[in-house]
Write a protein that binds this DNA or RNA. Structure first.
Lengths: 302, 302
DNA sequence: TCATTTCCATATATTGGACGGATGCCGGCG
DNA sequence: CGCCGGCATCCGTCCAATATATGGAAATGA
């Protein structure tokens, strides 16, 4: 025979009741099967666990020692089940979150992370910042569970992307640029002689293509300047008067010395912001994160 | 369905092997029953515990949480069994030991306790000192498990008594008594005028009766002096010249101011020393203690 | 002292479920 | 594209956990 949780449950019931008959009633079985099971357990343990006395059954020394060892096991089992259910519903565990460089400055992003932390305080967040391109492959290969990034048509088919917002692009100009001042929206054609500073297309197509498309929409092919790998270095290059750039409006909040921002006249260029995760077997945690992000979007736009 | 230890054992095997087929082989069952049992477990938990992938099975987040909760349970069960077996064989637990007042001074008694402590270091000893009469009822009513005491014919039938030794009685005299000095054994008749100080017969018949019998054996009926409840107070009364007494020889080791001890001429009065415990259902611990006491007796006498 | 009650053990029949064997389905790999 | 490793499903078998009925021992009370 092998010992099972059933034996332990029965044993504890008899130990508590001090009486086979009442214990059997509490367990919802008959008294003879209970006697039989306890006898099997005693045979397995190799020692008598109860003294059968006239008014019932009381623990032997061996029984007390055994009880000390197994008393917590039924509870332990239910706790393990609950903990597994919590993990399955995405209330606990680890979540790898990727943020693209230009997203971290959008107020919606920290708001979404804060909302998720509040709703699922037991989840351990691991946040990584990388270009949209790197984030996409991290998602596909499972290094990340969810990411907030700029979408592009070329994004892998096996990812689901939920739009969080459409953000206008603004022009970033050196402070000394002739067009750096002005209250009304800027006509992009005034920048057609300036080198356009962008990230290399290989690290993120979305912003790159949106900027090019904006220029072409008003009738000129921009001259590309020095490429910069990160959004921060783009602004540095602008400040150093290497050229101008088009960046998401949320970056206009940044107070970078030597850089001025101006909104752009219609047709206003826009770029998206999405939350992305695997289509097949997405971790529940990723779905929960996307839900939190959607809730924040609703609160901001609604 | 209710969860059993079997499910946990199977789950842990699959989690370790990462493969149903190998886990089944390790468990000594077929793969289909293992699949079935894991499926039952997942249904009971309410969450998938393994991802079935092409090369086997790997834990889900819920599976990891579940494993953290149940990983120790099989070991815990075997530990509980071992601990029960140890308790049953009298290696652990509590043992109530009673010592009669005049036994504590016999070197065999501390030697027996020391030997038991060494053989069963995990047993918690509770030592009580009381008169033989009180010890007997404590044994019968289960307040004590074993006792070292002076035996008498009137002792309860449901106790087993194993003789440890027969000890001669020596005379205890006031230091100023005419017979207090002398190398050879004392003739008891020289004390027939002195009041004989004993414990009341109600607290211990053995020593009381042996002393009376010794006097009668040499032809006089002793005059009883002030009774004293404890052996220490007997010696105090002797020192205060209230009379003389007959005490076990092992008390002769005590250096009590004002008290002199003399051996007694043949027929030398003797009194027994036994280890006693219940006949029915004696705790294994009591048997172990008696065995340790017997071993010490053998070492002393052999 | 005898009847009654209480409680545990035993005997036997039944049924649920754990298991084994055969097979099907899927994904990866040569 | 066929083979192979691996898990799921189906089905028959057998064990064991349970229920019912009964017996026996000890305490209780008349």
């Amino acid at each position: 025979m092998v010992m099972e949780l059933r034996h332990i449950r029965y044993f504890l019931a008899v130990a508590e009741e001090g009486n086979f008959t009442r214990a059997a009633a509490r367990l919802g079985i008959g008294q003879p099967p209970l006697s039989s099971q306890i006898k099997d357990l005693e045979r397995e343990v190799g020692a008598q666990l109860f003294h059968r006395v006239a008014h019932g059954a009381e623990l032997t020394e061996a029984g007390r020692a055994f009880r000390a060892g197994v008393a917590t096991m039924p509870d332990q089992a239910t706790v393990a089940i609950r903990s597994a259910r919590r993990a399955a519903s995405g209330e606990t565990g680890q979540l790898g979150v990727g943020l693209t460089g230009t997203a971290a400055f959008n107020p919606l992003v920290p708001a979404a992370i804060r909302a998720f932390r509040r709703a699922y305080p037991d989840v351990e967040l691991r946040i990584e910042e990388a270009s949209s391109f790197v984030l996409l492959s991290s998602l596909v290969e499972g290094r990340l569970d969810v990411a907030i990034l700029r979408p592009a048509e070329s994004d892998p088919q096996d990812l689901r992307e939920e739009s969080l917002m459409e953000e206008p692009l603004v022009a970033a100009l050196p402070a000394g640029h002739p067009e750096a001042r002005g209250a009304e929206p800027l006509d992009l054609t005034r920048l057609k002689e300036d080198p356009l500073i962008l990230t290399p297309r290989s690290v993120g197509t979305s912003l790159h293509d949106a900027a090019l498309a904006a220029c072409r929409a008003v009738g000129f092919e921009p001259r590309l300047g020095q490429p910069a790998p990160q959004i921060a270095s783009i602004l540095s290059l602008v400040a150093a008067e290497f050229g101008v750039s088009l960046v998401p409006a949320s970056l206009g909040q940044l107070n970078v010395p030597g850089v001025a921002f101006r909104t752009v006249r219609a047709p206003e260029p826009r770029v998206g912001l999405v939350v992305a995760y695997r289509k097949d077997r997405p971790p529940q945690l990723a779905l929960n994160f996307a839900k939190a992000a959607r809730a924040v979007r609703a609160r901001v736009t609604g």
